[in-house]
């Protein structure tokens, strides 16, 4: 049973709510929030099933799953499970829990899914170089005033805005 579709929360109120949970993460665990770290850890977990040796020989992956390390044994993984549950709760409560594909009016579903996959790959690739995504770097790093995080944050928005014009057919 779904509730009637509700409006989104005022962005400033949502922002304060988000900020308080971010603060709670620092206060309780000394950790920022993250999104892509858990995905990376799942990937390493997958690679580990196929070849432990490959993980051990990769200077990057070895930090997550080298030897007896369990890549999923991490604060961020449990946090992301919570994000999933929280999103689910909110979606059900506000009547937005519905299987659908959101796409711009001028492209079809298939094209949208291809672009989504491509965009996701690019995002994931970049996140590994910037050492985190919008949650881990821009949000958490922004709040702790880390220099590199602010630089990365501006880089993200710079390139997204710069490219937006050329992709207007996808979204508008």
């Amino acid at each position: 049973m779904l509730l009637t579709k509700m409006r989104y929360l005022n962005p400033y109120i949502a922002g304060v709510g988000l900020g308080l949970f971010l603060l709670a993460a620092f206060v309780f665990s000394g950790q920022g929030l993250g999104g892509s770290g858990a995905i990376m850890r799942t990937v390493v977990g997958g690679v580990k099933i196929f070849s432990q040796q490959h993980v051990d020989n990769n200077i990057y992956m070895v930090n997550y799953g080298g030897g007896k390390l369990n890549p999923l044994d991490s604060w961020l993984v449990f946090e992301v499970v919570g994000v999933f549950v929280g999103g689910l709760l909110s979606g059900i409560l506000s009547g937005r829990f519905k299987a659908e594909t959101n796409h711009g009016p001028r492209i079809n579903r298939r094209k949208r899914l291809i672009l989504s996959f491509l965009g996701g790959s690019l995002f994931g690739f970049g996140a590994r170089y910037a050492r985190g995504c919008t949650s881990g770097v821009a949000l958490s790093g922004g709040a702790t005033l880390a220099v590199g995080s602010w630089v990365t944050m501006f880089a993200i928005f710079f390139s997204a805005y710069a490219l937006a014009y050329f992709l207007r057919k996808v979204w508008l």
């Binding site: 999104g35 770290g37 930090n63 997550y64 961020l76 996140a127 050492r131 949650s135 770097v137």
Partner: peptide, 9 residues
Amino acid sequence: VRQEGEGGC
């Protein structure tokens, strides 16, 4: 010792 820090993300 060669260990990388883990991003918050």
